[in-house]
Write a protein that binds this DNA or RNA. Structure first.
Lengths: 374, 374
DNA sequence: AGAGGGTGCAAATACGTTTTTGCACCGCGC
DNA sequence: GCGCGGTGCAAAAACGTATTTGCACCCTCT
């Protein structure tokens, strides 16, 4: 078992000094382009990977990026979906390692971080006046949020375009015959819920549809969705479709429908935000607005790596497109049924092909800026 | 902004060399006890915290401990409860930092770890023949599991004593008048479910009670608990109490009871394993078997830190006691009602005082070995 | 009294990078 | 022909700790 290849081995193989190798790989010193390229090639051939520990020691950094999830606000959980966070965290971890960092959990951190120095912080679904992120910003430590901090559009963030995503799923349900779509929302503590709510109201106003909104209990369990649905179904007008801002709430909708003797999707179409195995395996399976949490995690890490290294990231705001995954809880696309509603204002002109292709209806959302800068 | 206190500052303040400080704090060299103590005191007074990065560089370690969760087996989730893992991970993170390590997520890691070197791995709720842990063991990297690897009692692990915990909750329900307690279990992929199942069967056999078990669908949602409960309620004999091995399943039981017109707790008492906010805030609130995931996380980290540093941990197996949290979903303790059942065989002689004290019925479980070796 | 061994601490080296400094060389202008 | 600025690279210092080696000193035994 030989010692791993370090900068020394690369230097020797390339016939230069270790200084030159370091400069060549980091784009730092004054080097002949030819030399620089040659060193890079040699390093790649040898499979050189710089030792993150040594790099951090020399650079005066800790190499640690905090990941804060599960913020609570007055006992209200801002998060609940395990799969979403597991995917986000998992992808972010791998990406962080590629950048020479390690991702550590900062959830529930109560001052434990005063002693160890985090180089940066990623806050998932921040709430208003999030204490952790403001503290870090004051200490001059870069912060990137996943979802925007409610009430402020600036700062560095990665987010889905939930306004466009919500419109796309409403169009989707409408194209499948829904006349009265209700929204089941979690309490408005994170930006994505506010976005969905806002987009829903606007969409209804444009269509002349009555807005039917039920805000679910803050525990965000299936029971919360269950109860919110019952409340809706007892209103004077019954919805024929429901969009829930959380997968777990949508599963509660399915339970409530079952309990009330309604058949899904013929009596009630149901769609939820966030794809998950639970929704996929349920009977009927749940149509979902997929958010691509892996991509969100990766982008957030890439962005904070830029910030840590003192470079301005390509863009301060990155939007990740959403995708609709049609499943059994919604009806198939009606066959060429011209609908009498006023023509939609440009937005959701999708819905071209068959409805069960799994990844159809894609690209319905914010192509915005996302993948521009390289 | 002054530079942080390093080993040099401590050395100067104590009037010794940095070598001596290092030796004094790590218990390594040959030092006068008096000197050793003095240095330790000075270090504490100055609030010295060794730089983990430098320590790792010198020690040839990465300082990273992997935390693997969300193992899947043929599409079956072995985990589902967010709160449990959030608490475990959070506590483990803090503990790791205290030991000079950083905790990184290894969930879903597919070879991403070949390049970076983890010093150790903690696997939460391992499944049979867990691939990640066997791979690490083969590479000679220490592994600690939280919950035992099904089918093997050896290895290093931290676990609740689920056999004792299950017996205690069954005794608890029995003391509140339950005559026919059913078990709703998740599929037996992790040791704790197997333990609970086994303990339940044994308890029933001892009491002469008929065992009523429903195995829930593997998605482990409230829907799964809902459906499992309906199945139970349609059996020839109806249970008057249910214990579910997962909080979320228990919430599904509550929904099903509501849907079937049963009143909890008078018609049906319900208890679940794992405490959570969702269960606490539900109406009726859910009686739970608390597992103390924080403690589990801390013990696991402490154990693996021992192993990484080449020392045998005080004990290879640590059992954390469980606690019953009585809430509204179970009846109050019957007032001195001598029950006609054969006297319990020693185990659950608890239940002394009032029933809503929150932390009563404590210490019902495995005092076993846990907190012995300091 | 001198050899031998144990004790208590400090100096020096190592860990693998990054960054700063230094040095040679070349072409250019005066 | 002599300085002078720019170029291309290497030597050396630094990051903060752990570990190895080295060196006094004291005690004891012969």
């Amino acid at each position: 078992m030989r010692r791993p290849i370090g900068i020394r081995e690369v230097a020797e193989a390339a016939g230069v000094s270790i200084t030159t190798v370091s400069h060549a790989l980091n784009g730092k010193g004054r080097l002949n382009d030819e030399t620089r390229r040659r060193v890079q090639i040699v390093a790649k051939e040898l499979g050189y990977r710089p030792n993150a520990i040594a790099r951090n020691l020399a650079g005066g950094r800790s190499g640690l990026i905090g990941l804060a999830v599960a913020q609570t606000l007055e006992g209200q959980f801002a998060v609940s979906d395990f799969a979403y966070y597991a995917q986000l965290m998992s992808a972010a971890t791998v990406e962080a390692i590629d950048h020479g960092y390690a991702l550590v959990l900062a959830s529930g951190a109560k001052g434990g971080w005063s002693t160890i120095r985090l180089d940066g912080l990623i806050v998932v679904d921040p709430i208003h006046d999030d204490p952790l992120s403001t503290e870090f910003k004051e200490r001059g430590i870069p912060v990137v949020t996943t979802g925007r901090v409610p009430g402020q559009e600036d700062g560095y963030w990665v987010d889905n375009d939930h306004r466009a995503g919500t419109r796309s799923i409403l169009d989707f349900l409408s194209a499948r015959g829904a006349q009265q779509i209700a929204l089941i929302a979690s309490p408005p503590v994170t930006s994505y819920v506010m976005d969905a709510h806002e987009a829903y109201e606007q969409w209804c106003a444009e269509r002349g549809q009555e807005a039917m909104v039920a805000v679910a209990r803050h525990d965000l369990t299936e029971s919360a969705g269950f109860d919110a649905t019952r409340e809706l179904l007892r209103g004077r007008r019954r919805p024929d479709a429901v969009y829930a801002t959380l997968d777990r709430l949508a599963l509660g909708v399915l339970l409530a429908a079952q309990s009330e003797g309604l058949t899904v999707p013929s009596d009630l179409q149901v769609a939820g935000c966030t794809d998950s195995d639970a929704g996929k395996n349920h009977h009927p399976s749940l149509t979902a607005l997929a958010l691509d949490p892996e991509q969100i995690g990766r982008e957030a890490v890439a962005m904070i790596a830029h910030l840590i290294e003192g470079a301005e990231p390509p863009q301060p705001h990155v939007s990740i497109p959403t995708t609709i995954l049609p499943r059994e809880s919604t009806l198939p696309q009606a066959l060429a049924t011209p609908r009498p509603v006023a023509e939609a204002s440009g937005a959701g002109a999708s819905d071209a092909g068959a409805s069960d292709a799994g990844a159809s209806d894609a690209g319905a959302s914010g192509a915005d800026a996302s993948r521009a800068g390289r």
